[in-house]
């Protein structure tokens, strides 16, 4: 009986947790709320009225579609680049021993530890020095720097659990390198790659800092939103777009969370 009482959460702690959650999520709810306001010049509270017309307005704004399409393309290609490079890098680091291996594994992780502004400035000056004009591809390159890290981190943890003898067993049973990758390595690291890829996509999709330094005239969705906030015209359109961004980034992250959790159970069974 006494242990029951001890297990019960004190009321104070419950309230504190509630306040913490509210602090984290109320601003997001406010953004959602203002997507429905009838007032389009300033965010006054409470909104004078509610309407759905901003969804239609947003739908018909070509600049929104341009920014959205650019962001999706940048995020997709960065993710693909990151998947290839991150997997290769993780395979090299975890399956072989070579001089400078530890240093390289640190260098790969470094971009995500560096402030984005440092990455951005260094990339910008590098592009200037190499006389590469700013374009779609310079944005992709900038995003790939941190996307690779996310994929690498996910893949390397899983690779460590694919013991070297599994690969040898596959070769021993007649599978060449490609078949071994297809039938043994990929099924064992697949969910980790999917999770890493989704996280990378979400990161790239809402990235602002590196993008400001590496983009030319193009505006990705977050950049477009930033610009839009300065102009006092059709402001709720920004909120509508924000809702979309939240959904587009939140769903992959949620999926990634469930995938890696599931994957842990699968690969844990072998040992």
């Amino acid at each position: 009986m006494r242990s029951d009482k001890q297990n019960r959460t004190p009321m104070g702690l419950k309230i504190a947790a509630g306040i913490g959650l509210a602090f984290l999520h109320l601003p997001i709810l406010l953004i959602f709320l203002y997507a429905f306001t009838t007032e389009d010049k300033s965010y006054q509270f409470p909104p004078p009225g509610l309407t759905l017309k901003w969804f239609a307005v947003t739908w018909n704004r070509p600049d929104v579609w341009e920014a959205l399409s650019l962001s999706v393309r940048v995020a997709s290609i960065s993710t693909v680049v990151a998947l290839v490079l991150g997997t290769l890098c993780a395979a090299a680091i975890s399956q072989t021993k070579f001089f400078g291996r530890e240093a390289i594994s640190l260098l790969v992780i470094l971009p995500i530890a560096l402030p984005g502004i440092i990455t951005g400035i260094s990339l910008r000056s590098a592009f200037n020095l190499a006389e590469i004009p700013f374009s779609f591809w310079t944005i992709v390159l900038g995003h790939a720097t941190f996307c690779v890290v996310v994929v690498y981190n996910n893949a390397v943890a899983r690779f460590r659990r694919v013991s070297g003898s599994l690969i040898e067993a596959s070769m021993d049973l007649g599978a060449d390198g490609f078949q071994t990758f297809r039938h043994v390595i990929l099924p064992n690291i697949g969910t980790a790659l999917l999770a890493g890829g989704m996280l990378a996509f979400a990161l790239s999709f809402d990235e602002v800092i590196v993008t400001t330094f590496t983009a030319g005239q193009q505006a990705t969705l977050p950049i477009w939103m930033l610009e839009e906030l300065v102009r006092p015209r059709q402001r709720p359109v920004t909120n509508v777009v924000a809702m979309v961004v939240v959904l587009v980034t939140f769903l992959p992250i949620l999926a990634a969370y469930y995938l890696t959790r599931d994957g842990d159970q699968i690969s844990g069974q072998g040992k």
């Binding site: 013991s163 003898s165 599994l166 040898e168 067993a169 596959s170 070769m171 021993d172 049973l173 007649g174 599978a175 060449d176 078949q179 039938h183 043994v184 099924p187 064992n188 699968i266 690969s267 069974q269 072998g270 040992k271």
Partner: peptide, 30 residues
């Protein structure tokens, strides 16, 4: 993979993502 030789590994090295039948049939599948 081109040698007509097979190995029973010290740690068995069974494929954790395949069931027993698919493990045994791996060489045949390849």
């Amino acid at each position: 993979y081109r040698r007509n030789v097979n190995t029973v590994f010290q740690d068995y090295a069974l494929f954790p993502h395949l069931n027993v039948a698919d493990n045994v049939a791996y060489g045949l599948m390849i």
